[in-house]
């Protein structure tokens, strides 16, 4: 039963990801990304990390998707423009040639993993407390540097986009 849930969620996640890159309408792409996010969140719940799952729903499927959809709607791209830019199919054989061996390698490795019972985890696994501890103890420096990255992005966006500085 558990494995069935996993396969269903995983398939939905992959389908959503495929939709994200293959739909023509940017809004459909964004919405299929939501599908992926929700499916991933389900996977987190299944793996005893309910807090991460909730964060995934709130932050990614909620806040970030709203931003993405906002931008798409604000830009208000005409459909015609996207219709013209067809992906050239000449690149596909080359891509398969280059990435095929890699895919075989990774997939063969993945298949060889023994599917056993899910290991027992202690009660605090994936809880808010343990996530917080990781963020503010082990990965404190990285956590702070991310805020610098965001600040750079904000300053950069203003510099490039604002009409009069």
């Amino acid at each position: 039963m558990e494995r069935l849930i996993f396969y269903v969620l995983a398939t939905v996640a992959v389908a959503g990801a495929l939709g994200t890159v293959s739909f023509k309408n940017p809004l459909s792409c964004a919405l299929s990304l939501v599908v992926t996010f929700v499916a991933l969140s389900g996977l987190y719940f299944q793996n005893d990390a309910p807090f991460v799952g909730v964060l995934q729903l709130l932050v990614y499927a909620g806040a970030i998707m709203v931003l993405v959809i906002f931008v798409i709607m604000l830009l208000n791209l005409p459909d015609v423009q996207l219709e013209q830019e067809r992906v050239s199919r000449q690149g596909i054989p080359l891509a398969l040639f280059l990435l095929g061996p890699l895919g075989v390698l990774v997939i063969s490795r993945l298949i060889s993993i023994e599917l056993g019972e899910k290991p027992e985890v202690n009660a605090s696994f994936g809880s808010a407390a343990s996530v917080g501890e990781l963020l503010f103890e082990k990965y404190l420096f990285q956590f702070e540097i991310i805020s610098v990255v965001l600040l750079v992005a904000i300053v950069g966006a203003v510099v490039l986009a604002k009409k009069r500085l």
Partner: peptide, 28 residues
């Protein structure tokens, strides 16, 4: 700052974040 973080990191996470700080600023 990003370049310095890259030079001082011994794990992938710090390295990536240093790289991104550096690159984002340079793109702009």
């Amino acid at each position: 700052l990003g370049m310095m973080v890259m030079g001082m990191s011994t794990n992938w996470l710090s390295l990536l974040l240093g790289l991104e700080t550096m690159s984002l600023a340079l793109y702009v």
